[in-house]
């Protein structure tokens, strides 16, 4: 079974869980995700992998309560087990397949928003272990809602914090921070990676394009099986329909049709509302 060995509350609505899943821990790579089903009547919920430890046989997931199914996941405690954890799913990040020669001279900047900060962490760790310089921008609504600051600081060259309300770090959006770094501070990057709410990834891509910076985004689409069977995750990338679960979740940010992706994300919102009890949304970004 998939036992929860450790659970922590990171913000009022975001929880971190370390779960026993030895096969996934052994095969996971940065950029991949997994699917959790709490019990027989639960949904299959796709979640990003925020860490994995092949020796301990555990994977770490970070979940934000945004609906009935994520609230269900967050209600599980240490020592309890999920009925199913399946993965790793999707393709690893492009840099995982790159040689030392290809990584030479690369300089990455990550743009992380809200709960999307968690899956950035294994990517930063991986690049750091290969000696690639990495800067990280973390954004949240306010200071108390920032996650993974300390963890990230151990592996990145520079950490930049942004808050919408100015309660910590740069007062403004992550996109503003990126623009500031490149145009004002003269930072040079070869690749940007944005993970967070769809709307943030959309604007991060627009900003990156303006700056002439290639950008990869990680799409958190609807999914059922996560293995290519259902097609719920289809997104338009470069004018073609792609399946985020088998061909993604990471795509070239310039090419993603974000407006369609955001519209498709809301497909079941009406149905889910009728099933869910009131969930406090106070720390959700207004854009999410």
């Amino acid at each position: 079974m998939f036992r929860i060995v450790k659970k922590e509350r990171l913000t009022p609505l975001i929880y971190r869980m370390e779960v026993e899943a030895p096969r996934i821990a052994a095969s996971a790579r940065p950029g991949q995700f997994l699917i959790v089903r709490t019990e027989e009547r639960g949904e299959r919920v796709p979640l990003t992998i925020s860490d994995y430890d092949p020796e301990k046989g555990t994977v770490t997931i970070v979940t934000q309560e945004i609906g009935a199914s994520t609230a269900d996941i967050c209600s599980f405690g240490e020592g309890q087990s999920f009925a199913d954890v399946v993965g790793p799913l999707g393709m690893p990040s492009d840099f995982v397949g790159m040689t030392a020669g290809q990584l030479e001279g690369q300089r990455y900047v990550f743009i992380a928003g809200g709960v999307g900060t968690a899956p950035v962490y294994p990517q930063v760790k991986w690049l750091h272990s290969k000696g690639v310089p990495v800067d990280v921008i973390i954004g949240a609504k306010s200071s108390g809602l920032l996650i993974y600051k300390e963890e990230m600081a151990g592996y990145c060259d520079n950490l930049y914090v942004c808050t919408d309300d100015g309660s910590e770090g740069f007062h403004g959006m992550v996109t503003g921070m990126l623009e500031n770094l490149v145009t004002v501070q003269g930072k040079r990057y070869t690749q940007a990676v944005a993970i967070g709410p769809m709307i943030m990834m959309k604007f991060a891509s627009l900003t990156a394009r303006k700056l002439g910076l290639p950008i990869v985004v990680s799409l958190n689409t609807l999914m059922v099986d996560g293995t290519g069977m259902c097609g719920a995750c289809r997104v338009t990338v470069g004018g073609r329909t792609r399946f985020a679960c088998v061909e993604g979740p990471e795509f070239n940010g310039y090419e993603v049709d974000f407006d369609e992706a955001m519209r498709r994300q809301t497909m079941y919102r009406q149905e889910e509302k009728s099933a869910e009890p009131h969930v406090c949304r106070i720390d959700l970004r207004s854009s999410d």
Binding site: V224, D225, M229, C230, G231, A232, R234, V235, T236, T241, E260, R263, R264, T266, M267
Partner: peptide
């Protein structure tokens, strides 16, 4: 129009 909301594969509809 195939990516409009409300268009599904039979696989998704039946799996659900």
């Amino acid at each position: 129009g195939e990516n409009l909301n409300g268009v599904f594969s039979a696989n998704e509809f039946l799996t659900r």
